[in-house]
Simulated scan of single mutants.
Amino acid sequence: MSDADAGAAAVQDVEAEKKPELSQLEHEGDVAADYLEGLLDIADMDGDIDLDVENDRAVVSVVGDDLGSLAGPDGEVLDALQDLTRLAVLRETGERSRLMLDIGGFRAQRKSELVELAKRAVETVRASGEPESLGAMTPFERKVIHDAVADAGLRSESEGAEPRRYVVVLPA
């Protein structure tokens, strides 16, 4: 085995170690669901909790009527609840979680809007051959844009500092 092959194998081994197992992700989802059910009870709100695993992360969705206040303006409350839910999972499991929380379909709707924004930016960059800067975005929003741009065959980079970090779509 060449040094390059050995190095590539070592990188794959490290990446495999970092990749959470399905049972661990399901456990994270269960812990998150218990925590969120408690919050819903305290807030005297009704909602069903759906659990899934996507892209090596637990996805927890709270669905129901009148959940807009739990998402808040521009998803600010949702982001805070996601952070609190991740802390609850950390407390229970001792492991940092990358779980994604959605409430009332807010993130799903926002993701759809961002994919359309990325498509328009890709078209502009292809037509002009010049980089296109987008507005400030949350980490979730930037990730959606980066994925959509990569799927279209172009590249993108994040620039700036939080909370004004933004994405630049670059020509191929």
Rank of each mutant, 00 (worst) to 15 (best):
S23M: 14
Q24D: 13
Q24V: 15
Q24W: 12
L25H: 06
E26K: 14
E28R: 10
E28N: 11
E28K: 05
E28L: 06
G29H: 03
D30G: 14
D30W: 14
D30K: 15
V31K: 02
V31W: 04
A33M: 07
A33C: 11
L36A: 04
L39W: 02
L39I: 01
L40V: 00
D41K: 07
M45E: 09
M45D: 08
D46K: 05
D46T: 02
I49K: 04
D50A: 15
V53H: 04
D56S: 09
R57A: 05
R57H: 12
S61G: 08
V63Q: 14
G64P: 09
G64V: 04
G64I: 00
D65C: 08
D66R: 00
D66L: 01
D66Y: 00
D66I: 00
G68S: 04
G68Q: 02
G68W: 01
S69G: 14
S69F: 11
L70W: 02
L70I: 03
L70T: 03
A71Q: 05
P73G: 15
G75R: 01
G75S: 08
V77D: 06
D79N: 13
D79P: 10
A80S: 15
Q82A: 13
D83T: 10
D83M: 12
D83L: 15
T85P: 05
